[in-house]
Computed example of a mutant assay.
Amino acid sequence: MVGQRVHVVGAGIIGLSIAHEVARRGHTVTVLAEQRAQASVSSVAAAVWFPYRSGTSPSLPHWLLAARARFEQLAGDPATGVDLREGLVVERDHAVDRSWTAAVPQHHEATPGELPAGAVAGMWATVPVISMPHYLPWLEQACADRGVTFTARRVARVEDVAGGADLVVVAAGMGSGALLGDAALYPVHGQIVRLPNPGLTQWVTDTAHPEGLTYVVPRRDDIVCGGVAQVGSWATHPDPAVEQAILRRVTALVPALAGLPVLSRATGLRPARDALRLEPVAGYSVPVIACYGHGGAGVTLSWGCAEAVADLVDRT
Rank of each mutant, 00 (worst) to 15 (best):
5 R>K: 15
16 L>E: 01
16 L>D: 00
22 V>I: 14
27 H>I: 12
29 V>F: 11
31 V>C: 07
34 E>D: 11
40 S>N: 03
47 A>H: 06
48 V>H: 04
54 S>W: 02
55 G>V: 06
59 S>Y: 06
63 W>K: 00
64 L>N: 03
67 A>L: 07
67 A>F: 01
69 A>S: 15
72 E>V: 07
73 Q>C: 09
75 A>H: 05
76 G>F: 04
82 V>C: 14
84 L>G: 13
88 L>C: 11
89 V>D: 04
91 E>R: 08
93 D>T: 13
95 A>W: 15
100 W>I: 12
114 E>V: 09
120 V>W: 06
126 T>F: 09
132 M>P: 00
142 A>N: 03
150 F>C: 07
150 F>T: 02
153 R>N: 15
154 R>M: 12
159 E>N: 14
161 V>R: 03
162 A>M: 05
163 G>M: 07
164 G>A: 10
176 S>M: 12
176 S>L: 08
184 A>K: 13
196 P>D: 15
198 P>V: 12
198 P>L: 12
198 P>D: 15
200 L>Q: 09
206 D>C: 11
207 T>R: 10
208 A>S: 14
209 H>A: 06
210 P>E: 14
212 G>F: 05
217 V>K: 02
221 D>N: 12
235 A>Y: 04
242 V>M: 07
248 R>G: 03
249 R>F: 10
255 P>K: 12
258 A>D: 15
261 P>W: 10
265 R>G: 05
266 A>L: 14
268 G>P: 05
279 E>A: 13
284 Y>F: 15
286 V>R: 02
287 P>T: 07
289 I>T: 04
293 G>V: 02
298 G>A: 12
314 D>R: 12
